[in-house]
Each structure stands twice: as C-alpha cells, then as structure tokens.
C-alpha cells in the first residue's frame, strides 16, 4: 500500500513537473540563442490555453482520439511503473512489473504511429513512418539495455556498457533534435501532429513532454542503479537527478542539427548494434 501511494505521488509530481522542466528547457534554449525566452511556466500556460479551445476532431477522428487517449495513458502508466519497479523488485530479477513497463513503452510508440496514419494526411503518414523507422532502430536496444541493467547483477563493466546504450536510446525516445524527424517542422509541417488542434494538440503536447520526462527519469534511474542504489533511495535520487538529465538532453538538442531520415536510423544501428555485441561479450566474460 505504501509503495502504491509513493508511486502515485512520485508519478503525479512527475506529470506536474514535466511541463515545468520543458519550460526550463525553453528558457535554456533562449539563453543560448541570446533571447529572453518565455516564462518557465509557459508550457503549462500553453496546455491550459489549448485545453480551453473548442474540440476539433480531425479526419479519421475516432481512431485519432482513441489512440491519442491510449498513448497518453500508456505513457503515464509507464512513468508510474518506472517509479514502482525499484520499490517492489529485487535487483537481478525480472518480474511482471518490468515486462509490463517494456510492453507499455512499446505500445506508446506504436500508438503514435497508428495515430499518425489515422489522421489521413500525407505529412502525418510520412511522419508516422519516420517514427516507425526510428523506433525500429532504437527501441529493441532500449529494451535490451534496460533488461541488462535490471537483471545483469554485479558486473560493473557490463552495467556501464548497458548504461551507455540506454542513455543513447532514451535520448532518441525523447524525440529531440536530431531525432525529431517525425515532426520536423520545416520538412513535414509538424508531421504526426499536423491535423491536431485545441485539446487534442494539448494531449499530443503533453504526450511529448511526458515522453521526455520518461526518457530523463529512465536515464536517471539507470545511473542511480548503476551506482548501486535501489528501492526508496533509487526513487528519490532518480527523481532528483531527472531535471539534470533533462538539461543535458536539452543541451545536446540545442547544439545539434536535425538528422536525415535515412542517416539517423542507420547511424543508430551502426552505433547500437556493435555496442550491444560488445556488451554481450562483456557479460560472457563475466566483467
């Protein structure tokens, strides 16, 4: 019961703080651009405004609304499970919670693609396929590295190698430059989000922000667990470390340009596949 309450509180704090972190990112971006930038709470202001607008259902409406609702539910549930896992599991054991977390994470990505195709807009469809390509080239490695960290036991080199893979994949999960190709404003005019407006766009925006939170917290938790922390300590430390990881993610995205749809996935595969082979070898060597 206590675990459930703690998970609920931590998840709620995450959901509330995620748009604030996004506001911080915008402020940081503006500072590097030599602009003043919006207030830190601007993302919340945007969301409130979007939710106050009339509901406009795009073409392909029912599917679009349904997938959007399921997508954000999957993301919130993923965050909750991520918080819950260190409280109720023992390091080195892959339980049903871990399997559920992986399943929800995968489902959230799949739903983004379904939403994109459901909108019946060529930009959105192209964006959906881009999302699919990126997911194919990073999510299997994300799952692999997460499982490796959860079940890998006391092998420091192996853990660090897995952590490296997870860090890269989590960044890709955050849909930031250079991997924002599914939305890529100058190329696809918002791509997967092109037909969305008002509350639906608000949900999609929240979904992006939560995805970024998830990516940051996942990386933070991986760091904390690699450092040897688990249970309550791990939860508290990972939540404290999440904004720092978010800032690092933001800095990387600010300093890079957008990748191309064929180059990005290829680069990921060429990086992640050899890294995974090395990681498995390290495991085999018992390091």
């Amino acid at each position: 019961m206590l675990h459930s309450i703690l998970t609920l509180v931590a998840s709620l704090v995450g959901v509330v703080l995620a748009p604030v972190y996004d506001g911080l990112e915008r402020k940081l971006r503006a500072a590097i651009h030599t602009r003043i930038g919006p207030p830190v709470l601007q993302t919340w202001y945007d969301l409130v405004k979007l939710f106050s607008k009339e509901l406009v259902i795009p073409e392909g409406g029912t599917w679009c609304v349904l997938t959007l609702a399921l997508e954000i539910t999957a993301l919130v549930a993923s965050i909750a499970l991520l918080n819950y896992i260190p409280l109720v599991t023992i390091p080195g054991v892959v339980g049903v919670e871990v399997a559920a977390f992986i399943a929800l994470l995968t489902v959230a990505t799949a739903l983004t693609m379904v939403r994109a195709v459901a909108q019946n807009n060529v930009y959105s469809v192209v964006g959906g396929f881009r999302e699919f390509t990126l997911a194919l080239s990073s999510e299997p490695f994300l799952v692999f590295s997460y499982l490796a960290l959860v079940a890998g036991g006391e092998r420091p080199v192996f853990r660090i190698s897995s952590l490296l893979i997870l860090t890269i994949c989590a960044y890709v999960l955050s849909s930031r430059i250079p991997y924002d190709i599914a939305e890529a404003e100058p190329e696809l005019s918002a791509g997967v989000n092109i037909e969305l407006a008002g509350p639906l766009l608000g949900v999609a925006t929240m979904s992006t922000v939560l995805r970024r939170f998830l990516a940051a917290e996942l990386t933070a938790l991986a760091l904390v667990s690699t450092a040897g922390f688990w249970s309550y300590q791990a939860l508290v430390l990972s939540l404290a470390l999440t904004p720092a990881v978010w800032v690092v993610h933001a800095l990387v995205s600010i300093l890079l340009g957008r990748t191309r749809v064929d180059v990005g996935p290829r680069t990921l595969l060429l990086t992640l596949f050899p890294l995974s082979v090395v990681t498995i070898t390290i495991y085999g060597l018992g390091l």
Partner: peptide, 16 residues
C-alpha cells in the same frame, strides 16, 4: 538554412 536543418542556434545568431 540553419533553421531548416534544425540548428536554431545558428539561425538566431546569424540574425543577431
């Protein structure tokens, strides 16, 4: 050009 390539730092500083 920088903006189109997603590099908004270049965009902002060029215009600055």
């Amino acid at each position: 050009a920088a903006h189109l390539l997603g590099y908004d730092v270049g965009f902002m500083h060029a215009w600055r």
